[in-house]
Amino acid sequence: MASVPLESYLMLSAILFCIGVVGVMIKRNPIVIFMCVELMLNAVNLTFAAFSRYRDLGDASGQPLPSASHYVDGQIMIIFVMAVAAAEVAVGLGILVSIFRNRVSINVDEIDLMKG
């Protein structure tokens, strides 16, 4: 079975991650910043899925081990990452709503109450 090499998935997720990093650094709208964080989390999820699929479970001759036929740890980590992302979005958007209620503007340059 000829398939896509692992490096392609890893490279794609690295590119997506770096696009997310740029977005977090240059955007001023906190909602778009959250979206870029989601983008980075998705890139990491893709890495998890790729490594989970391509994980070397065989013995020396390349035969899959019968006891290790259901190794899905990477995919379970994806589910945990999704749960953390959902929690983060819920709390973050709640914070945004409450900031907007108190200060009308939510430009991140103007939210500097905690600046020392």
Partner: peptide, 21 residues
């Protein structure tokens, strides 16, 4: 960051390149 990750990709073992599952 991208260049660091790309450099790390060189170190991925060759046995991982094709799925054996």
């Amino acid at each position: 960051t991208l260049s660091v990750i790309s450099a790390a990709l060189v170190g991925v073992p060759q046995s991982y390149i094709h799925p054996r599952l």
